[in-house]
Design a protein around this nucleic acid. Structure first.
Lengths: 143, 143
DNA sequence: CTGTATCCCCGATGATACTG
DNA sequence: CAGTATCATCGGGGATACAG
């Protein structure tokens, strides 16, 4: 089932494979751009916040509401990280009580493209994953 | 600097934004395909293993060597997860001592595409991120 | 060679209370 | 409204020893 498909991907994987081979041989693992980005993408809230800001700037309380069940603590912390990395811009309006909004920077918008591709893959292939899990678990159960 | 760029991304972000707005409103947060995938992508080793297998199947010991400084424990554990999700196929050859190799399935190869896009973004934009961090940290230091 | 079994530690996250 | 401070928890992941 797997073997027949390898041909389909040979062309793409050839290039990609060579790239990653060189990459691994170079000892990429330490302080590598990719791990750096992946660590951020990988945390529990960054992607959710970035996508929540995709359409328009939002205020702190709006984000707190729109992103499901994130604590104020983690919202603040994640926003700071995103701001520090130049993905999000924070604007304070000196009203009372204070008004603050967050918007994606150009860099923030740009990461949404590869991110959207990945999210698209997740949505498109999630059924396959679920099926694979089921098969795997039942096989394990048989033992 | 940010505002001027928004126009460039308006067209793309409009659609993407609407998608994510609907997505957030739908209460996506719980057992959502995307969090599911992101959790795996986000862990410390999955992407490294996936890319290490991009070119060709590898044996356990080869993976242990090629992926920088992963413990046997985590290698086994991560490979099991990837196998369970149908991204990696495990083949045992009944020799003595045992020989085992791991290869990407079609599903595994397919995730490499969006993943490669993200990695490409990381490599292309890492300098911008580093610059942003520097600026942010110095600004904080000034306080 | 290819793992499994244990123990342990630390950082990420949550809960709660407080502040300008 | 928009945070900060503090404490408690929980699980990911490393180290090490053992096993088929």
């Amino acid at each position: 089932m797997t073997r027949e498909h390898e041909g389909n991907h040979a062309a793409a994987s050839e290039t990609v494979g060579e790239h990653f081979d060189a990459w691994h041989e170079a000892g990429f693992a330490e302080n590598c751009p990719v791990r750096d980005v992946l660590d951020r993408i990988g945390d529990k809230w960054s992607v959710l916040i970035l996508t929540a800001l995709a359409r328009e700037p939002k205020r702190f309380s709006a984000l707190n509401r729109d992103v499901g069940d994130i604590s104020k603590r983690m919202l603040t912390q994640t926003l700071r990280s995103l701001q520090r990395d130049g993905l999000v811009e924070r604007t304070v309006y000196p009203t009372t009580p204070p008004t603050v909004d967050y918007r994606l920077t150009e860099l923030g918008h740009s990461v949404l493209e590869p991110l959207t591709a990945l999210i698209g893959w997740a949505e498109a292939r999630h059924d396959d994953i679920r099926t694979a899990r089921h098969a795997f678990d039942e096989e394990a159960e048989a033992a």
